[in-house]
Nucleic acid binder design. Sequence first.
DNA 1: CCGCATCCATCACGATACTG
DNA 2: CAGTATCGTGATGGATGCGG
Lengths: 144, 144
Amino acid sequence: MSVRHTGVTTDPVIVRDDEQTACGVREVLDRIGDKWTVLVINELAHGVRRFRRLQRDVPGISQRMLTLTLRRLERDGLVVRTVYPTVPARVEYALTPTGRSLTFVLEAVADWAAEHRHTVIESRARWDSGTGAPGPGAETQGRA
Amino acid sequence: MSVRHTGVTTDPVIVRDDEQTACGVREVLDRIGDKWTVLVINELAHGVRRFRRLQRDVPGISQRMLTLTLRRLERDGLVVRTVYPTVPARVEYALTPTGRSLTFVLEAVADWAAEHRHTVIESRARWDSGTGAPGPGAETQGRA
DNA sequence: CCGCATCCATCACGATACTG
DNA sequence: CAGTATCGTGATGGATGCGG
């Protein structure tokens, strides 16, 4: 942990370890910031899934990327892989407790997205339209 | 918002919008999941910063990447850019309210990282050492 | 001091083909 | 069904040099 807030819910400030904090965040983001990881985790949050099922339910993912994503998740202990030695091999994937704990973080991200998506899209539109004049809550507080 | 938990603090399950949720998360991750964004945001969480100062305090970032990162953040309305028309131009960057709200999310990520880093590293070591026998809490619950 | 433009290395990702 | 192997490509980011 590194980002600490002042206590009031307005102005978050880091109290220590500028680099430590950011480092931990960066590590996590390097894992879940790729194109497919969160989609797979999200799907596995529904319950145990087999390979084909995952590929069907995560639209657009290739066999290769699904395999790579699952292997990385397994390596990090976020997913368990269970192989049943039946005739056509059958493999099931499930989140570990650690993996499930990540979904809470993803929920936080999802909530932020839901709350600010509109604002961000607006800002982007202003920016793209021209040298957009900043909207409310984003004034330059120029002193000089 | 899309990831919903069951109420008990053990087994998070998505209740609706499999794709909607993941979509919002993916969008955010595409913005902050890059190499420098969170580091810059983290630095700006300390207060207003000038360009050179940022480059010094975010070790390893190039002028190009700092510029690109700041422009993207400004475009999304997470950062305000204030130019003072002095002789050698002086530019200051600061987080907007929206940008500051993001630090709370980053805090959640940082907390998760702090809590699970050790577990993940262990799991990774086991995986890399060989066909690692899964540790506690990660047993295969084979049925067949 | 601030920042853009260009060139170049790397890599994530996609498509395809083949195996157990 | 559940992968592995190989190849090609677009995006990301680092280094460098120039301009306001």
